[in-house]
Design a protein around this nucleic acid. Structure first.
Length: 416
RNA sequence: GGACGAGUGGGUGAGCGGUUGAAACCACAUCCCUGCUAAGGAUGCGUAUGGGUAACUGUACCGAGAGUUCGAAUCUCUCCUCGUCCA
């Protein structure tokens, strides 16, 4: 959530930043006005309530002393009617303000380049050079079917479109990748955690998926539970509504989970293959840190994800997202895109974001800084998306006869 | 699924419808005393938000929400969680 105090104090600066991210200026004018109205409504209520409290105390004293209370009671009764009215107004204002504020995205950092969409993202660097093929490299779905690794049709039979079934070496490679990634992250200082795949509304509000993006989530019928779209949600919310000690920070965590996304609005995009599935495996990094250390940790996370790809000898590039491509909760985001020779292009395989205190404010995650309670910074990033890594291995390690070599670092995980 | 019981501040744990934001103990912080492998004493110590330069002060919060009442941690209802027993 954006900082409403800052909105009050430094309205113009905040407005300028949010307008870069496409938030209507008029919306912020309204928000500011509502915030002021709420403040007045609260003050009205509190004044009356203070009066009520003191009269009620007097009431007790009167009874003890055996005084006549009828006059006081009349006053107190009248005041109570006023309170009810004023409280109603306050509640309504509160609700209006909250539903507006919760739908406003994070402020982009000044370092985020302006831009409309992914075409305006800025490449920071390339790692490893794609190899040249003496033949026309195939796309992963073709290789997957040829090798009997992935069956897309039977996935549809079991569930619906955008589900698949992995067999044999395809399935084993997924498991090997998960273990390899978790071990890799652990060696970089990230503690492994295992979390629920279902979460409640509060958790999703904490990380920013709700209230705005409910259509993208699978919801359990009749319950306020949702399938997680990313491990970021449960892992970040582990410390929801807690005040952490300064020396317990940073909390560097890594988790493997399945992720579930409806992919609403993605009709027609990547319909073939396993680039965009409703269910996919992902190993995630999540960090809660002090504000002053979050940028250094961010760089660590990008390097960690990039180094996994390097270890797998997969060419990739690192890209700074522009304002138009930036997610709801992020202050800035770096994507890692892996080279897919079959598609002849780089495709996203990791997305690393610093949300600064945006999520922490929503999820109420603070730490004790001396005497003060301060919001932590939260960061998250894939390290990595397992399915897409498998895609990249298939396309980059393919041979002319359609066979696929196994990356050296994965061999121990496959006992080969 | 059913029957009971319980949910209080970092922890343990008192709380009669009014003087309880909440005893006590532990932990923690600062100070004092003392000097030795430790102990004693003093003070402070929840969160959020409003007002005030500040001292200070208003309001809300005792699992969540609603209700009764002039007044609720304390009574009622609903829900959630945990425990025990039954199916």
């Amino acid at each position: 959530m954006i900082d409403l105090k800052l909105l009050q104090k430094d309205f113009d600066a905040m407005r300028t930043k949010l307008m870069r991210k496409g938030v209507a200026g008029t919306l912020l004018d309204t928000l500011k006005a509502k915030n002021e109205e709420l403040k007045i409504a609260k003050q009205n209520f509190e004044k009356l309530q203070a009066l009520q409290n003191s009269m009620s105390k007097e009431f007790g004293a009167y009874k003890r002393e055996g005084k006549d209370i009828s006059e006081l009671k009349a006053k107190v009764d009248a005041n109570k009617i006023e309170i009810t009215k004023v409280l109603d107004i306050q509640r309504q204002k509160q609700e209006e303000l909250e539903s507006m504020a919760m739908a406003i995205p994070n402020l982009p950092d000044d370092s985020v380049p302006d831009g409309a969409d992914e075409n305006d993202n800025v490449e920071l660097k390339k790692v490893l050079t794609p190899k040249t093929f003496s033949y026309s490299p195939k796309e992963h779905w073709e290789l997957a079917e040829e090798n009997g690794w992935i069956d897309f049709e039977r996935g549809v039979k079991l569930a619906t479109s955008r589900f698949s079934v992995s067999f044999g070496m395809g399935a084993r490679l997924e498991r090997a990748l998960i273990n390899f990634m978790l071990d890799f992250n652990r060696e970089r200082g990230f503690e492994e955690v295992s979390v629920p795949a279902l979460v409640n509304r509060t958790a999703l509000e904490g990380t920013g998926q709700l209230p705005k993006f409910e259509d993208d989530l699978y919801k359990i019928d009749g319950q306020e539970l949702f399938l997680i779209p990313t491990a970021e949600v449960p892992v970040t919310n582990i410390y929801q509504d807690e005040i952490l000690s300064a020396d317990s920070l940073p909390k560097k965590m890594t988790a493997y989970t399945s992720c579930f996304r409806k992919e609403a609005g993605a009709a027609g995009r990547d319909t073939r293959g396993m680039i965009r599935q409703h269910q996919f495996h992902k190993v995630e990094l999540v960090v809660l840190s002090k504000p002053q250390e979050s940028e250094a940790i961010f760089d660590e996370m990008v390097l960690c994800a990039s180094d996994i790809l390097t270890a797998l000898e997969l060419p990739h590039r690192i890209v700074n997202l522009c304002t138009g491509d930036l997610g709801f909760s992020a202050a800035h985001t770096t994507d890692i895109e892996v080279w897919l020779p079959g598609q002849d292009q780089y495709r996203e395989i990791s997305s690393i974001s610093n949300t600064r205190e945006f999520q922490a404010r929503r999820a109420k995650i603070r730490y004790k800084d001396g005497k003060k309670n301060v919001f932590v910074n939260t960061l998250n990033g894939s390290s990595l998306a397992v399915g897409r890594t498998l895609v990249a291995i298939m396309e980059n390690y393919q041979n002319e006869d359609g066979s696929i070599d196994i990356p050296e670092v994965l061999k121990p995980y496959l006992n080969i």
